[in-house]
Design a binder for these strands. Sequence first.
DNA 1: GATTTTACGTA
DNA 2: CGTACGTAAAATCT
Length: 799
Amino acid sequence: MVDLITEIVLMPIIEIGGIMLVKTVGPVGAKIFFVGETPGEEEDKYGTPFYKDAPAGRTFNSLLTLAGISRAECLVGNVARERPPGNKISFFFEDKKCTIPKQILKKWIEDLRQEIDINQPNVIVALGGTALWALTGEKLISKFRGTVMESTLCPGIKVFPTYHPQAVNYTWPLHFTVVMDLRKAAYHSKFSGMPPDKRVLIEARNIDQFISYLREIKEDTISVDLEAAQPGSHITIVGVASSPTVAMSIKIVSGNHSRYSRGEELLLWRELGKVLTSKKLIMQNAAYDTGVLLLNHGINCINNLWMDTLLAAHCLWPETPRDLGYLASLCLDVPAWKHTAKDDPAMYNAADAANTFGIAEFLYKELKRTDNLKTFEFEMSEIAPSLLMQLKGIPVDLTARDELVKEHTNIYKETEAELNKILGKKINFNSSKQVQNLLYIDLGLPVQYKRRKKASDPRKITAGAEAIKKLSKLVPNNPIFNLLLKYKKSFKLVSSFLEIELSPTGRVHTSYNITGSATDDTGRKSFGRWSSSESIILPYGSGNLQNIPEEARKMYRAAPGYVILQVDKVQAEAVVVAYLANDFKLKKLFKDRFNAPFAEKGQFDVHKFTAVHMFGVKFEDVTKELRTVGKTLRHAVNYSAGPGVVSAKLGCTMTVAKQLLEKYFNINPQLRIWHQSIQNQLRENRTLTTPLGRKHKFLERWGDGLFRSAYSYIPQSTVGDLLNMDLVDIYNEAGKDIDILIQLHDSIYFHIPEKDISAVQKLCLKYMLRETEINHDTMIIEADFKAGPSWGEQESISY
DNA sequence: GATTTTACGTA
DNA sequence: CGTACGTAAAATCT
């Protein structure tokens, strides 16, 4: 019977009272059926769903191409067949939350059901939340995308949800996820029915059962996952998988009580310790699990790590989310399980363990295929030093801290009182809104706006420090500006950096994150630099240790007889840029500096060099001010900053800033060429590779924002990686003997006995002068040293 | 009470 | 129209 129909759409366009009916199109018996939401303006005009020249249709087609799917072989339709007023799907629902469909929508869903029934596709791809709801009754696309579901509308038929192409248009980085999803959908179009779930996930009834499971594991690799209660990171559940399909978990804690006797628990930890120190281990975010095991149970299994799936995913896809649920949706064919954490934590944990194993196997193949194994192994080697730095913490001198708190609390309180007196009323100067009202309404000053990232961004009013500085120039002799700045500075210092909780031993801890940021899930920029954030294992301190201001650094003091020694990569990013841009003059300067004896190195200062070329003065005659101009311009231009930044930094007018920039570019034409070459590389496949082999695909919209992000990528990433290589080597050689305190992107701090200074300097130099090939030349970034009684009081020392 | 915005510290 | 990062406090949402 079906044979009689060659195309579903015999009459795609039917006009009813001026509104087009947009029907499903495509060949009968297609294996994939794409279902969207409603027709848009163009679809309505031409009667075709995802019309090729409509915004969503254009994106849809390009996503299909990237996923290797031929649209001609697919059915394509929408849930709603007419365009609602204002393109709002809620028009077809009785209620605001879009759960009760109106009669007409019910009829369209029945049409959809019949189309599915006639065609019997192997997979229906639900594009967006409405299609997901119509086909399965579920609403949250972000929760279910990437996982196979069974249709409730047509039982027995697979539904595979992903984002709507229009969502990709709004948030372009989603396209990576959608392409990955579509590839998986293409795989599912090859067979009908739900994929069998072969996993055996078991919650152990008691310790004995868990221990016998551990003892019987024959495989040499296992994956491990812990659940822990905060604060204190007390382990509540342990899960171990011996393969992607076999996992067992055991609940150790119920409520606030251990479920087992002390003796039983000790037995468990002993047996677990044996397994963890004899097998190769897979973990997701191993630094946390290994850290908790080491700190709370004395189990040190760091050297047994084979793969941290977080790091593997970071090396492969640094631009995407990397939580386990997301990775599973890309790599595996398992049902979504992340929402079961509360209802059945033990099974949830077992699923975590098993899925981590499966993800690891997938990622390993991908790392190999894409030539990323070296970067991955390097990142794995960073786990031990970063974790031990976290656990060790850095010492705080309580007396110094209290004095600083007292001093700066006085400053902001006095400043506040003075301001209130001048203004004749009380204002919260930490409130941006109140300060804006004060400046722009009460005082009627010219409104200051934030610098925009894009010309198309809306202008935003600001009352930040930069705006206040500008106003103080416009209105001289008004004392409130300086008072405001003083208040903000000291308040911030006290609240964010001085009044912090210390550990019982008076230390501060931070978690060094090898994979960088994790804040939002629409594309990240992690370039291989570490980030620093609050340690969940030891939650003491200000969290981020990479943004402590100089004043607050004074409270981090060395023990008696000890010093804090700092090693810096000299002008690191400027050196990398010089080699990337192939700036011969500059490269020669850096090489000459390297070959000069220590006492003469000051004669090869890059910023003075810039000033010499900019202003035609002699090297000896470069003033401090001219050097600052040179430094600011080099920095600004390297990263394609504009005159706004230069004028703000130098305190000059925009006109002067523009002239300076122009002059700089004329003297350094290589920079424009280098920027152009970055753009050319992006044009090829949006991917940049650093001299150390780290790759990053830039998913943002094509344009200046993308370019600027890309310009900064190679220098930042290369310097970060080189410093971490140094740190790993130094740790591997001497981590047991010397205390590595802090990593600050291009410098490392040590806490060492004063008598060891020159030995540690030697150790640093042994590794830090490593050679890197760039543009068929050999780059060496120099190192220099400072030391002092505290982190905030550091003096240069020779070597 | 949870989430978003604004501002600000470092490299 | 520098980039990258994390956090505190205020504002805003539900």
